[in-house]
Amino acid sequence: MLLYTMKRLLQSIVTVLLVVTIVFLLLRLLPTDYYFTEEQLIKLTDQQRHDQLAAAGLLDSPFVQLFRFYEDLANLDLGTSRRIQHGVPVTQVIGGKFLVSMRLGLISLAISLFLGVVMGVLQARYKDKFGDHVGTAYTVFVNAVPTLITYSLVLVIGARLFKLPSMYSVRNVARSSILPVVCLSLTSTAGYMLWTRRYMVDELNKDYIKLARLKGLSSRKVMYRHVLRNAFVPLAQYLPYSMLLTIGGSLLVERFFSVPGMGTLLTDAISRYDTSIVQAVVILYASLGVLGVFLGDVLMTLIDPRIRLTSKGNTR
């Protein structure tokens, strides 16, 4: 197992480097004009633009640039932002933001996981009865109405009826986090509910459950001791991944409530061609993503001993 873990970690590092290289090269596919703001394109002559690009090392072949990028990376130098916060080191720009996103994300993950799994189990328990239909109605409603509309409604109701602050504020973190967390949880809860129900129902139909019932096991024991444990295995796969990716923040929620987090950073950086930020964010997301997938696989084997990740003892 340990050997496998080491192997996987090494593979993960390779994956991350691969991802970063691909993004780096992809960004270099764009014409060099994208490095300049609209104003600079107007004001600078071609020669000036050429000189500035040469000075910043942006005219060399992509592979030379790549090599230099890795050199800097080895020295833990991620560069400075050109547009988002002109001249500020990338680590500083990202630093404050991801804590904010992570906090909101983890709170809503905890809430939605708990509510979602519990309600999914209840739905499976009362399958085809009233409770199941109510649950389905909720899931469907949340997914049918476009998220921006849902958020607008939450904002209007929250601000007018409950007098909650309309915008996230650093000076009033607790109260102003309520509406964003509610929005984030609404959709995730529905997701967890849906899939928990699906996996539970699939398990409930299995023969060993029929046997357990025949043996006289109480409904509750059947549900939680047997069904949930088995149904949880596919869910567990995604848990570490989701947890780590809360750092990434939610684009829509953060935009809507003006949360100063990571969510909007990537799209802003891309639309303003702030390549150093884009690369740093991609490194961050890639590392977290790969790590999360790996942890998810490990978690899956821990819960269900029948799953084997290594090929020991099998024919193919």
Binding site: V14, T15, V19, V23, L26, I270, V282, Y285, V290
Partner: peptide, 22 residues
């Protein structure tokens, strides 16, 4: 797994922007 990781971890926005532009 590598293929999945690589495609998954590059934010789709980057691909979509490049596709839209090119």
């Amino acid at each position: 797994t590598e293929l999945y990781n690589v495609v998954n971890n590059v934010p789709t926005i980057i691909y979509m922007t490049l596709i839209a532009l090119m």
